[in-house]
Design a protein around this nucleic acid. Structure first.
Length: 469
RNA sequence: GUCCCCAUCGUCUAGAGGCCUAGGACGCUGCCCUUUCACGGCAACAACGCGGGUUCGAAUCCCGCUGGGGACGCCA
């Protein structure tokens, strides 16, 4: 039997980071088993579902590098089929109309809570004749759940989970307006789509019991379930907007690479021995449900940043430049071919020092624009610093352009430092300050070389001339 | 309130009764490399929540407690 999984988000907002991980696990499982990864948009909540959210889901998945097979199913379009199944359940006596008002239900819940009872509908219409229905009332249709015994599911992550059927009430499958509810729709769709493995967040674990009963009532084959733990914020509380429950596009905008996020998300709740850096190829090869942990994990931006730095360093300069461009353009810069060339050649030194594309863009700025000096840089250029700067300007201007390479410039500076009995750092920091506006940057000699003699000297001279008392 | 799930360094985790003096990674600290900062290398710090069992032997199995999370919608 081949594996068919699905990712079934509801388009009521952005693609949440936890959902992204669920999608990733599904995708890896499908690809590992050479099965199918299906997409189903659960858009039956018409009030909250939006076209924009659907697009955000597609875009988010694409950005993350997750693809899917076949045309996505829109749950709303399958409403007729869901109603049909409800009618069938009604016909075989596994469902019944219920005329309870929302007020009555509310009352029931309050009472149950007060008595320390489970909060559930008391099945008062289960065996009543519809003749007793209040005139003109539109009933909901409820599923006739077993009232005795237990329901047991064999979860591939959670193991065997039992619940007493007493805890489960007769859930509504058709609303008063005739539309189907979630717990019916999922079962019907999963069945019709031939889903073999349902991998989803463990917030759905309790729904599974109810869904299980519907499968049984319909005599349908029950798929395998795998409920993966949720992701928490750094403080262990539920992931909220404040700490990480952002849409996936927010991570893109913060300058994280999809391969880094994929690697990070994969290791959140799944492991393969001591492996930390895992390529997508390896992930597909290794992924299984046996090694999915059962406890929830906290989202840690620091570790994500570390991984991101790794993937930035690994990336080819050309590819990285392409990713960098939009981040540079956010700074309202127009990048002419010359600027692009400088960035490309400066990439080796730059990418070593950035954990995000945002950081990379900040650090790359000096290549394409005359920098303003930050506080530290100004401090370097005190009276002594300025003298050393003038000294170096002199030496550099007499240095032949034909020999203007990183290695030669370094040797030259070392020689000067030795002659003047100065530490190399002392001599070079003022250059860095003027060239980059910062105290921290790639190698000064690398920068001199990439900028070229002309540009480099102009920056030095401009600074010197504007600082002659 | 009721039910369900979970519990190893600060964080992510390895660990399927003896291989555990509990391993790796991130972070933190120190050192080396060094023109700054990174990268890289080396080292240090740091955990089996508590209490009972079972067993010759438990981080691993069982029970309880505590703590965390989730679900209890005519939302999905």
């Amino acid at each position: 039997m081949s594996v068919i999984v699905r990712f079934a988000p509801s388009p009521t907002g952005y693609l949440h980071i936890g959902s992204a991980r669920t999608a990733l696990f599904n995708w890896l499982y499908a690809r590992h088993h050479q099965g199918k990864m299906l997409l189903r948009i659960e858009d039956t909540d018409r009030a909250r579902s939006t076209r924009e959210a659907v697009d955000a889901i597609y875009k988010g998945l694409e950005w993350l590098g997750i693809d899917w097979d076949e045309t996505p199913v829109h749950q709303f379009e399958r409403m007729q089929r869901h109603v049909e199944v409800a009618q069938e359940l009604l016909a075989i006596g596994m469902a019944y109309p219920c005329y309870c008002t929302p007020e009555e239900l509310d009352e029931m819940r309050k009472e149950a809570r007060a008595k320390g009872q489970p909060i559930r509908y008391d099945s008062r219409w289960r065996d009543r004749s519809p003749d007793e229905a209040p005139p003109g009332a539109q009933p909901v249709i409820r599923f006739k759940a077993p009232q005795k015994g237990n329901t047991v599911i064999h979860d591939l992550v959670q193991g065997e989970v039992h619940v007493s059927n007493y805890q489960l009430d007769d859930m509504i499958i058709l609303r008063a307006d005739g539309t189907p509810t979630y717990n019916l729709s999922v079962v019907v769709d999963d069945h019709d789509m031939g889903i073999t493995h349902i991998i989803r967040g463990d917030d759905h674990l309790t729904n599974t019991f109810r869904q299980f009963q519907v499968y049984q009532a319909m005599g349908w084959k029950i798929p395998h379930f795998a409920h993966i733990p949720l992701i928490h914020g750094q403080d262990g509380a539920k992931l909220s907007k404040r700490h990480g429950a952002l849409g996936i596009e927010a991570y893109r905008d913060m300058g994280y690479l999809p391969e880094a996020l994929r690697n990070y998300l994969l290791r959140l709740g799944w492991s393969h021995g001591n492996h930390e850096i895992i390529s997508t190829k390896e992930a597909i090869e290794w992924f299984d449900l046996d090694h999915v942990g059962k406890s929830p994990a906290r989202f840690d931006f620091i570790k994500l940043a570390n991984l991101n730095g790794h993937y930035i360093r690994e990336m080819k300069n050309d590819d990285l430049l392409n990713l960098l461009i939009p981040f540079m353009e956010k700074k309202r810069l127009t990048l002419n071919p010359e600027a692009l060339d400088l960035l490309k050649r400066g990439m080796n030194g730059l990418k070593q020092r950035a954990k995000t594309l945002v950081e990379l863009a900040d650090n790359a700025l000096f290549y394409v624009t005359i920098p303003n000096l930050d506080e530290g840089a100004q401090k370097i250029l005190d009276i002594e610093g300025l003298e050393l700067l003038k000294l170096m300007e002199g030496y550099l201007s007499s240095f032949p352009e034909t020999r203007w390479t990183e290695k030669n410039l370094e040797d030259y500076a070392r020689k000067i430092a030795e002659e003047k009995n100065l530490k190399l750092g002392k001599l070079v920091q003022p250059l860095r300050a003027v060239l980059t506006g910062k105290t921290v940057s790639p190698s000064v000699f690398e920068i001199l070389h990439i900028l070229g003699k002309d540009k480099s000297l102009k920056r030095l001279q401009k600074y010197i001339s504007s600082n002659i008392n």
